[in-house]
Amino acid sequence: MTITEAPQATRRLTTSKAMVEAIAQEMERDPSVFYLGEDVGAYGGIFSSTTGLLERFGPQRIIDTPISETAFIGLGIGAAVEGMRPIVEVMFTDFMGVCLDQIYNHMAKIHFESGGNVKVPMVLTMAAGGGYSDGAQHSQCLWGTFAHLPGMKVVVPSTPADAKGLMTSAIRDDNPVVYIFHKGVMGLPWMVKNPRSIDEVPDGEHTVPIGEARVAREGSDVTVVTLSLSVHHALDVAESLAPQGIDVEVVDLRSLVPLDRDAIVASVAKTGRLVVVDEDYLSFGVSAEVVASVTDRDPTLLRVPPQRIAVPDVPIPYAHDLEHAVLPRHDRIERAVRTAMGR
């Protein structure tokens, strides 16, 4: 891995390498940054979130923990309260169940409960998502749950460049930031991947503001608002529909908290049609929030009823065909776009 010395403005990196590059740069810049979690040392992170960091920064700053999420998330909180900048990895979002109290009752509430007197500048990273038959306890996204609970920012990058820029911003933020990476965007050699998981990444310092969505593809007919791996799917669908005269705009939310409602409304104001694609559960979640972002502001912007494509309130099934039936994949996205277009 090379960083700032490289002369070129960008290089093509996988999402995981871009994420690691941001962590390394921030660790060089700020000695109070450290990373801890399960298998983040010699293994380099089960989903390559820390590849090469142990060799570079040593076991004092790249720290393998016992399988004790409550203890080590709490450790991160306490260290952050005392002015360090921990990055704490929970291997899967699904594991939130064993440590949620530290996350939502402590990490997310201390600043508020202290009336702003105590800051908790930490990053909580987690791998999310399915599509590779890992079953109901290792395939969930759950970002909507974190976003629902007040007091933590939530970012969900889909591209290598955003993975780097959002990680840099998350580490520097004085608030707790939950940084969720879909396994399918990381560019892992051992998992089927979208070609978009390898892309240009700026050299040197690169930040992406937390709370700003990105128009991943401009279009005039229908807006697809989505995030994470579903951005890749939505772009594939958009490209396949373009020759048929359907011009899809794809909005990549990038952040759930804060949510860039202005960007959603601006796009729908242009197209008049909204499809929301979310790999999290359908009900009470991100997709409804996106629709409400439009209807709260101006329901007349919608020329047709909005379409929501998400996991239909069922645990993620194991068998490949069953799993792919419930995930928001190309076929379901395309059908929703066609429904919105009336074709």
Binding site: Q60, G74, L75, A79, M84, Q102
Partner: peptide, 23 residues
Amino acid sequence: FSCSGIIAEGYPPALGQAFAFQR
């Protein structure tokens, strides 16, 4: 000084304060 209203959950953040002091 800090508190937690949740039983036993004040222990983990103390680890982090100790960690920072040690480091």
